[in-house]
Each structure stands twice: as structure tokens, then as C-alpha cells.
Amino acid sequence: MRKPPAWRGPGLVLVALAAIFAVAPRLYSNESVLFTMMTFMALAQGLNLLYGFTGYLPFGYVGFFGTGAYATSLLVTFTSLPVIAAVLLGGLAAVVVGLILGPLFRLSGPYFSIANLAASQIIYNVVANEALKPITGGPYGIKIEHVYAPTASYVTMLAILLAATALAAYFRRSRFGLGLRAMHQDPISASLAGVDIVRERLIAWLASAAIAGLAGGAYAWNLSVFYPEAVFTLQISVFAIVFALFGGVGTVIGPLLGAALLYAFYAGIGVSAPQYFELLYGLLIVLLVLFLPNGLASLLTRRNVDVL
């Protein structure tokens, strides 16, 4: 029997994602829910690129998101670039910040996570600093209302989600991703086997930063009037981490499923029974930690199903 081509599974996931989010606004007119769901799916997938494949957990992942949001907004404010180009450059700005923070990889485990968290807060405090009011708007926020375009920003976020998913599929199926996973298991053995640990880890880190930066840019475009707290709130990091863990990191569909299900649950409770929100959400996470520590994807892998 012929083995199916390697791209078929990822291709199907990408087509399904594109189809679902292209059709969804016709069935459900609250586009903000769909947009925010895609944002968290992209962020969970971006975080998965780093945490799922290298084991480095960036608590301050929101720093890249906020960087992308502000870089995009500033480019829109001070240049005549098209918004799409500004979003792409927002992703690039996050990559530059990622390069500057590269030395954080001298740390590992919780030390890396805490240092990353501190770095994100430093970026936040710089952006929100009053001395930078003429440039970033400081604590008074930023306004790019003149380019507000919910549909265009929705399509852009969908493209970013597809790009993040394609990258995760590449990480999952390629020799490069195999090297990352080997490094995750045992860095010394991987190094002895010829894996360039520093280079590969940095690539994963920058790819992860780029996704967050791009998502931040599209998010800023969709919000268009916001204060620094809106794009640097730690809630964004927490949600991205919880969603990715819920679905199962190190896979392609895990973070997508985790973010889609948990966010839908979050939005649903928020509308129908907000008084029970904290209770139900907390309960769900406790159950997850107790019974599915490796996420939803582990339900299949336990049964020897090859999960993408």
C-alpha cells in the first residue's frame, strides 16, 4: 500500500482552517469572537513552535505580541506604508526584539521563563513611558482609527494563523523539527549527533516571535484604539500557554483544538453565565492537569494514533 504524501495531513488542516474561518462570519455575525479566537489560535501555535519543540516556556510571550502591535501602529501613524506592510514589519520588529533577547537562552527551565517575563514587562514599561508620549503615545494609548478595517484585519489574522500552522507542520515533519525534538530530549546527545543546537533553537525562537509580532500587528489593526495594557497584559501569555497545553504541545492540531475549544467555552460562559466563569474555568483546568497533563492530543497518542 502506498504511503500518503507527507504534505497531505498538514494540507488538509490548512484547507479546513481556511474554510472554517472563511465561512464562519456568514453563520455567526459577531466577528470579534472569531477574530479573537484566531488570535489565540495563532498565539498558541506560535508558542508551540518554541515550547512544544524545544521545551523553553516563554512566560513573557506577550512582549512580542505587544511589540508587533505597537510597531504596526507606529508605522501606520508615522509613515504612508500600506497597513499590510506595517503588519509584516510588526512581525519583523518582534524578530529584532527576539534577537536582542537571544542571550536569555543561556538560562533554562524556570529561570528562562521568569527572565522572559521580566523582559516583556521592560518592553511594556518602555512603550508606556510618558517620556515617549510624542512617539508611542505613552500611557495615553495609541489611535489608528483612520485605518480601522475589521474585514481586512480578519483576513490578515487568518493568513497569520495559516502561516503559523504551516510552520508547526514543518517543525513536526521535517529534519529540522526532528533536531529540535532531539535537543528537547537530550541536548548533549543531539549535539553529538550533529544538531546545531544554538542555531536551531534561535530559529525556533525567532519564528515563534515573528508569529506573535504578526498577530499583534493584526490585532492592533482590528482594535485601532487601545492603551498599552491592552496588548501587553499578561492574560495574553497565560491564555496562549493554557490553550496550547490544553490541546497538547509538540503537535500541529493540539494548540489549534485547545485554543478553539477553550476560547469558545470562555466566550460562551462569558455571555451566558458570567457569574460561574471563574469557577467553571478553574475546574476545567484542574481536571486537565489531573487527567490529561499532555493535552487533548494525548487521548489519541495513547491509542497509538499518529497525531499531526
Binding site: 455575525s29 459577531n30 466577528e31 470579534s32 469572537v33 479573537t36 482594535l223 487601545f226 492603551y227 495594557e229 491592552a230 497584559t233 492574560q235 495574553i236 466566550a267 462569558g270 455571555v271 458570567p274 457569574q275 466563569f277
Partner: peptide, 20 residues
């Protein structure tokens, strides 16, 4: 609706009020 002081949640809920 309860936005729990979150701007992200508030965005979706304002949209909910308008569109749903």
C-alpha cells in the same frame, strides 16, 4: 455582560451586543 476588566473580552462583548 461581564467583561472582567479585560479589553479583549470587552471587544467581543460589545460586538455581541451590537450584532447578536
Amino acid at each position: 455582560y461581564d467583561d472582567q476588566s479585560s479589553t479583549a473580552t470587552a471587544t467581543t462583548l460589545y460586538n455581541q451586543l451590537i450584532t447578536q
